[in-house]
């Protein structure tokens, strides 16, 4: 099955074919078999985390505040003007550390230790969407244009550590060598198609639970609060950090938000609360001028995630 730049590819010798049946628009979450009381969320769609407050800019009345326009990737520097410095942490750092990482939903997020083809090591974040599948960024599973001989291509392995909190691994670790992405990333290196998946050799996601995911229209996303929790490299090793606020803007392939992140959070879920469940709407991948961005879960992305979850 081909689907343009969303054509699914794998590092496995036998290509998986897409099911013929039409897929639903939304896939539901699961809190997993581990049990316990899930963390609460606020009425405006953010996780209820001690120490986290909604950004001050969002308390300004809408008529007095103009949302930043989307830094459309196809107009590049023209959108930014003269090269300014970009910060993936914008203004005050609003991230707060999650310490009860064995509880849902935090245990859905996994710290990733990536070993590239040249044995260089990297850190990233992934999130369960099913018993044996985690979503992450395409550049986590397949390296493009590294400029280093022997580094490009599918990574060698990824150690997956769900709910990690420093040296504490409440669900242990599992190593995968089984990855998915799409040709828009693996062949073209186009950041609009920067998403992928890790398939693990166990059913650990049935214990931790997973996030749902869905494809949402622009108007709905633009009035939605979103949440990101991941494993940044500027904090104590293996600690999970959270921030959340409203979506800044969207384009057909990306979602932009002023949520603080740092290197190591590539692949994190950008998720919303919907009907009491948590649903990924994008895959965090880049830091930008005034907003960070993630690969939007469009219908084509959704279809691939359903395929990879099976």
């Amino acid at each position: 099955m081909t689907n343009g730049p969303h054509t699914a590819v794998s590092n496995q010798p036998v290509e998986i074919t897409a099911p013929a049946a039409e897929q639903a628009v939304f896939e539901g979450p699961s809190e997993g078999a581990q049990g316990g009381s899930p963390a609460a969320f606020t009425s405006d769609g953010l996780e209820q985390v001690a120490g986290h407050t909604r950004a001050l800019s969002e308390s300004v009345p809408a008529e007095a505040w103009t949302a930043p326009s989307a830094p459309l990737p196809d107009i590049g520097e023209a959108s930014f003007g003269p090269p300014d410095m970009l910060e993936t942490v914008h203004g005050p750092d609003d991230r707060v550390q999650i310490t009860d990482t064995a509880a849902y939903p935090w245990r859905v997020n996994a710290s990733l230790l990536i070993t590239a083809a040249d044995n260089s090591q990297w850190i990233g974040t992934g999130w369960f969407i099913g018993p044996h599948t985690l979503v992450t960024a395409g550049h986590v599973v397949h390296i493009k244009h590294s400029g280093v001989p022997g580094r490009d291509g599918w990574v060698k392995s990824i150690q997956v550590m769900p709910g990690r909190n420093g040296t504490f691994l409440p669900f242990g670790a599992v190593t995968s060598t089984n990855f998915r992405s799409v040709t828009g990333w693996t062949a073209d290196g186009d950041e609009n198609f920067d998403y992928g998946a890790i398939v693990i050799p166990t059913e650990l996601g049935a214990v931790t639970g997973w996030f749902g995911f869905g494809s949402w229209p622009d108007a709905d996303l633009l009035k939605t609060s979103v949440n990101i929790s991941g494993y940044p490299g500027d904090q104590p090793p293996g600690t999970q950090w959270y921030d959340g606020r409203g979506v800044s803007s969207v384009n057909p392939l990306k979602v932009f938000y002023d949520i603080d992140t740092a290197g190591g959070q590539s692949g994190s879920a950008v998720y919303r609360i919907h009907n009491g469940g948590r649903y990924g709407i994008a895959v965090h991948a880049y830091g930008g001028l005034t907003t960070n961005s993630g690969t939007r879960i469009t219908k084509a992305v959704f279809d691939n995630l359903v395929l990879w979850k099976a």
């Binding site: 970009l86 850190i123 990233g124 960024a137 550049h139 880049y286 830091g287």
Partner: peptide, 16 residues
């Protein structure tokens, strides 16, 4: 852990 904290263009949020 090493990462690019800022720069003139959007950067992948990964760390080495």
């Amino acid at each position: 852990s090493v990462h690019l904290a800022d720069g003139p263009v959007p950067l992948p949020d990964i760390a080495a």
